[in-house]
Write a protein that binds this DNA or RNA. Structure first.
Lengths: 357, 357
DNA sequence: GACAATCTTTTTAACGTTAATATCCAGGAG
DNA sequence: CTCCTGGATATTAACGTTAAAAAGATTGTC
């Protein structure tokens, strides 16, 4: 057997041709052995796979992308983290999304855009022009989302973290059930005996905020509790603080405050502190998102944890299905958040002497 | 003028050939007009650029990557966020790194690896085999870092967020001066009149922790203050809490505690709370990293903010220089953190009645 | 006016892969 | 023995780009 292979590899890269030579077949057969196993004889396939293994061959994605117009890249646009946002959610999300993507044979590529939907769409377009992107992951989709319309018009597969909120069944999405979460939080404080339960949520424009508010309404209605104590404010500590003061100044004041975010809940805690009231013992508080701060404050903040790793996995799964041309309608996955109970919602003794984390 | 161009584009993609037809030149001339402007006549170049503009041509990165073995991709590996880590640093870092990369004509691709240096190196190798990666960005490099050795042995350009700590001048790095930061924090509390200033830092293995500790030592030596109050612990709230108790139980107790992280500082705040002492008024506290929690607690936590956007820009800059084959030695950039003064280090009146954010 | 030197543009070939097509070969039917 | 069928493998061409080489145009020199 003559060794016709001159030099192992030009650039440290093993190519199909080299594997083919090694296995004594054509390059196409190697390609088939890997991508269409049933097109090569079992015996040959075995020989080819051995050669692949031996030489450590990995298909070149650039060549494949050029030939197939499919790059195994999934694009995602990060948004700048606002300084007041306490949530680590994005960081975690990106990590698990990437992990799931790699698991499924993709890679995550970040895209960057000027702020605003127009800038984002332009960034997507530019990226698509420059290189083939297999799919996009959107976050925080809203009613009548221009990005959805754009991607759809281009025929690019995509899945969204967040519902479209317009009942569009043709959109693949994964979301966390904010309504169920807030309901669970409300149920929890009601179970502690609270009857005057207020809700501090976001402005009416926010579909997400509206959804969370519904959960509180559900729970209150179930128990025939009054729902007069509600506030719709921006998501800031100061707004939470002020709203809390209002609800505690009411003629029949709140004894529990269910909030749409940890940031708001921390504002409530500050308001209690200013009044010499104890979170938990005097007024129950719940937040939303399980930000790192929630575990660090004293007493710990009861909050809802989003199953962010499952969100990531499901999004990639949904994209994978779309790419496979699965004829079934796109996936819709609604996940339940988990109630994390800490001292802020429990009557018990002053918890601050015990570390909550 | 006959319109020989049949159909605008097969896949919505405009190619060199189409631009060439439009401008009445060869494909190579278009390529040259874009990449080697001085190789085409000014007049021709103008015509070509007009055609490029008109058709909205963007070079196909896959084809370019295949041909040039250079993908304009920069890879970065995220690490999973540990639950107790309060810092948003990575999130912000990734954002600005990507922004800077896009600005410079690159794209960021994430890579995923099993935990541990071996897994990370394997992930880098796999990625390099599969697709051409122009460069890598490392984070948290340490003494004798295997990843540095590996990337160097493969001849791949890379830059590191963090020094190598072994005086290796051939490594391109960007870092934040922890020593200067801690020194500034110590100077700050000394300026408030404190003389018994303790330091709660990380275990001796941590080069980063050691560096920060040095800053405290520097400032104390300058003022001939004692340096007996020091702790080297793991980075957790509980460890900070216990260390604080020890330093407050000392025969001559600390009146100020400079910490190597916000997490530790929050532990200190809890310890003070347990003793009925007020942060700022009774004992000054400083943290490190300006985590979101620092602004949310009451009183606000004095801390050091890393100029993370500058870090991102400089890293891309350094990589760009490496890629350009700049013969000068690799860049080393040491940036100063910014002291963010909040209530926890100021004697003033009880600040909790005033929102600190 | 011939020849070189220089500038400009085109042609050729290749990067590594894979769909489409062509070729080969064995076994079965007529 | 020929023809067909179908499975296995090989060949061709193309994805879009660019380096290298070739060809063409222009200018200057003696």
């Amino acid at each position: 057997m003559q060794h016709t292979n001159r030099g192992p590899a030009p650039h440290g890269h093993v190519t199909l041709v080299q594997v083919a030579q090694r296995a004594g077949v054509s390059a196409q057969s190697v390609s088939n052995a890997l991508n269409n196993p049933d097109r090569v004889a079992p015996e040959t396939r075995k020989r080819i796979l051995a050669a692949v293994e031996e030489l450590g061959y990995e298909p070149n994605l650039s060549a494949r992308a050029l030939r197939n117009r499919s790059s195994s890249l999934i694009a995602f646009k990060m948004r700048p983290s606002r300084p007041d946002k306490a949530s680590l959610l994005m960081d975690d999300f990106l990590y698990v999304l990437n992990a799931a993507a790699v698991e499924a044979g993709y890679h995550l590529i970040l895209c960057h855009a000027e702020d605003g939907p127009a800038g984002e769409i332009k960034a997507y377009r530019d990226l698509l022009k420059k290189t083939s992107i297999d799919a996009f992951v959107l976050a925080e989709t809203h009613h009548n989302d221009d990005r959805v319309a754009a991607l759809r018009s281009w025929g690019v597969p995509f899945a969204s973290f967040g519902r479209s909120w317009d009942g569009d069944d043709s959109l693949a999405w994964v979301d966390v059930d904010g309504r169920a979460g807030t309901r669970a939080a409300t149920d929890h404080v009601a179970a502690q005996g609270h009857r005057r339960i207020g809700h501090i949520g976001w402005l009416a424009e926010s579909e997400l905020g509206q959804d969370r508010r519904e959960g509180w309404l559900d729970a209150c209605r179930d128990r025939e509790l009054e729902t007069d104590l509600q506030a719709a404010v921006v998501d800031s500590l100061e707004a939470g603080r002020q709203a809390a003061h209002r609800m505690l100044d009411a003629s029949r004041p709140a004894t529990a405050l269910v909030c749409a975010s940890d940031t708001l809940a921390l504002g409530v805690m500050r308001a209690l502190h200013e009044r010499g009231l104890r979170p938990g013992a005097d007024v129950a508080i719940t937040g939303y998102d399980d930000s790192p701060t929630a575990a660090l404050v004293s007493p710990g903040l009861t909050t809802l944890r989003q199953p962010i790793d499952e969100v990531g996995r499901q999004l990639i799964q949904a994209i994978d299905n779309l790419m496979a041309g699965d004829p079934r309608e796109p996936q819709h996955v609604l996940l339940e958040p988990e109630l994390v109970v800490r001292g802020s919602s429990l009557p018990g003794p002053r918890t601050s002497a015990v570390p909550t984390s």
